[in-house]
Design a protein around this nucleic acid. Sequence first.
DNA 1: TTGTATGCGTTATCAG
DNA 2: CTGATAACGCATACAA
Lengths: 332, 332
Amino acid sequence: MRKVSQMVGVSTATVSRALKNPEMVLPETRDKVLKAVEALGYRPNILAKNFSSGKTQTVVVIVTDLTNPFFSRIVQGVEEEAQKLGYSVLLGDTNDDINRERVYAEMVLNNRADGLIQLDHLFPFADKDKEIAKTVPMVSVCDAIDGDYAYPYITIDNFAASRDVAKHLISLGHTKIGAIAGRDDSHVTSDRLGGLMRVMQEHSIPFNQDWFMRGGYTKQCGKESMEKLLALADRPTAVYCFSDEIAIGAIKAIKNHGLRIPEDISIVGFDNVDICEYMDPSLTTVDQPAVDMGRRAMQILFQLINGEPIQSITEYKPYTLLVRDSTGPVPN
Amino acid sequence: MRKVSQMVGVSTATVSRALKNPEMVLPETRDKVLKAVEALGYRPNILAKNFSSGKTQTVVVIVTDLTNPFFSRIVQGVEEEAQKLGYSVLLGDTNDDINRERVYAEMVLNNRADGLIQLDHLFPFADKDKEIAKTVPMVSVCDAIDGDYAYPYITIDNFAASRDVAKHLISLGHTKIGAIAGRDDSHVTSDRLGGLMRVMQEHSIPFNQDWFMRGGYTKQCGKESMEKLLALADRPTAVYCFSDEIAIGAIKAIKNHGLRIPEDISIVGFDNVDICEYMDPSLTTVDQPAVDMGRRAMQILFQLINGEPIQSITEYKPYTLLVRDSTGPVPN
DNA sequence: TTGTATGCGTTATCAG
DNA sequence: CTGATAACGCATACAA
């Protein structure tokens, strides 16, 4: 910048103004400065800018598993919006490791980032940082952050979505309904389970605890859980999987077992990732607007960072039950 | 930091040394400093550190489509290694938009990042930055950067892998072999196509240009390409897809068309993403060690950033042809 | 409108 | 071994 100012014969302050507040500078001077900038190939040093301003124009996104396409689509949404708002995205794939979660959360405390988007329900900070963490801009997607915090979050109405799933299965004649959940400690899980149980109860259908499995959101977990269900003497005729990944694993287990979908067992997934349409059979699932949720999370984080007021802590996005070929009438 | 120094009664320089070069400071002083740091909850301001050092300890990863699980696994590898080496990863999902590519590439020129990992073969910088770009630490994965550059890259021997695929199909009796490529302008494509054609030639099998389709690496493109092949009067009995995503789309098209795999048409994929094993039929594919490739790219980038010598521009990783159920004997 | 001067937090240099 | 001080590049308050 000094070189530019010398070349034009003005002060560095003028150069700075010409670039950042063009209207504060004579058009004539401005043009000369811009020409010199061009000629010298000057690039503002963002490090200095950040240092001086105390802002990084960067946000951290914490995700447990980037290979889950539902999460990667949310990240895409976050990033798209971040770029529009002039922010960069630091990726934090934790691989379910709590220590890495801490590392990424610390980035906000260290001024490496201005805010945090959590695609999980865990409070990512260490206990000793609890207090200071209350002041950091953070938004979560899908679920509220565990504990007594007031961070905003974007989600869908999991309870209502589950009711729709339950009604769909019951309308097909199913009464022996099982479920495979991803985690056993999140609101998402309890809301989805709650919606399912409520509707079953309304129809006087008993809920069999033996048909409720818990594990991760992965294909592998889905396969293992389904294998356990298949080993039961009395099996469910429909299984509601709390993610498409789980459903994919479950379907594999069922086919390995020599059974057909949906003739022998109906399967419902959750998320509506791309692959659902390409599955055989195509997967009945609940569509979550992943990209939109990511975008919206970034918008709200932006407001938080800039001290703007937030309308509401919880923001619900629309969901849709997509009935495809993996669900069918109950077998006789 | 000033507070800490005042509390202990030393200078800020001593505090800095106690934290960064503990051996340069009396153990006694050091302990006092560390205690004060703890007591005051002092956190080094990374912005200031970066500014002072001119380094960001950050790298940018440019990826065209994060939802492709092959890419997201490479990114996972990059990130894992980056964290080990003390670096953060700025994510740059370009969605095939050349402008976004530029934006991310500029981050290195602006001192927002110290290096760049390109998961694509495009030269990401604008023409005007061509010269300066030659000095930036950059590594690519899968393919060499287009143009006359000497950036290191990590890949597999695509030519040899394709030869293995071709031999496998020919050993099953196939002579009518088609292919669906992702792009028509990369080394990856020409190497894979070259390996296939070479082996066919060695077996005096003609290569039919009508059976060679080009498009993106997506499921959608795979489906569309396959539909065109199916519409042909004379169809291939085996189709080699240059990504698993393409293969998934192709399989859907074949099933929609009422044909069976592999009884009517054999399908080979590429990459060995997780879903391959869960497909019906499970997908014959070429395994690429995605996580390793990402890790290694980060290691080499690290060397580049630190001015260490690179052994070789090209680094080949081992691949494996995994024969599963989507390939079978040629139909009569 | 423009120039001068200062500060941001850390590290490095040099002196003590 | 430790203290004082300069320097990094930019933005801005204040002066002219």
